[in-house]
């Protein structure tokens, strides 16, 4: 099975970080994978996105142009990428920041007030990881076990104190 994921939002929302976490989770599960960031001027205050592909087989093109999964962290991202999701795909909508509904009826949609949920656990910047938790729950694309092993790969040793709260954010999303 191959899952092509596009995570998109504002620069600063931890879009690349969330993608990196999924990539490392895949690595630890011996999956084939790729992680490709958008890079360039659009990262300064504009939109940032990253493509993650998890597969049981070799990954072809690392560019996700027709995502199976879109995680939209802000309205411009939903506006830009909603049409690209494959029919039957899934869209995760950050519903604290995005007030509109998904227009398409051929995709599965989960509305997650991730920013609000993140605030409620005292970690307002971790909406990204809340979304990841919900994504793991609904997709089963990676396992819910040994989250800390993957987190340790992305949270630098200098910020080891943030491991616990990241884990809590994922759990919060998973349970939502």
């Amino acid at each position: 099975m191959t899952t092509e994921i596009l995570i998109a939002g504002f620069g600063g929302q931890g879009v690349l970080f969330a993608g990196k976490f999924l990539a490392y989770k895949g690595l630890l599960e011996n999956r084939h994978l790729s992680w490709l960031p958008s890079y360039g001027p659009e990262m300064r205050g504009g939109t940032a996105n990253c493509s993650v592909i998890l597969s049981d087989d070799n990954v072809g093109s690392p560019i996700v142009s027709k995502p199976d999964v879109l995680i939209a962290m802000n309205l411009p991202s939903l506006d830009k990428f909603e049409k690209d999701v494959v029919p039957g795909g899934t869209i995760y909508v950050e519903s604290t920041l995005i007030s509109r509904k998904v227009a398409r009826d051929d995709v599965k949609v989960f509305y997650v007030p991730a920013t609000e949920l993140a605030k409620s656990i005292g970690a307002p910047t971790l909406a990204n990881m809340v979304m990841i938790g919900k994504f793991i729950r609904e997709s089963g694309a990676v396992s819910y076990d040994e989250l800390d092993a993957a987190l340790k790969k992305v949270v630098s040793a200098r910020h080891a104190d943030l491991l616990e709260i990241n884990l809590k954010a994922i759990t919060t999303g998973y349970q939502y």
């Binding site: 690595l27 994978l33 790729s34 490709l36 990954v59």
Partner: peptide
């Protein structure tokens, strides 16, 4: 190229 330079893979 920029893609292969920027992407991560195992």
């Amino acid at each position: 190229d920029g893609t292969i330079g920027q992407m991560m893979e195992p």
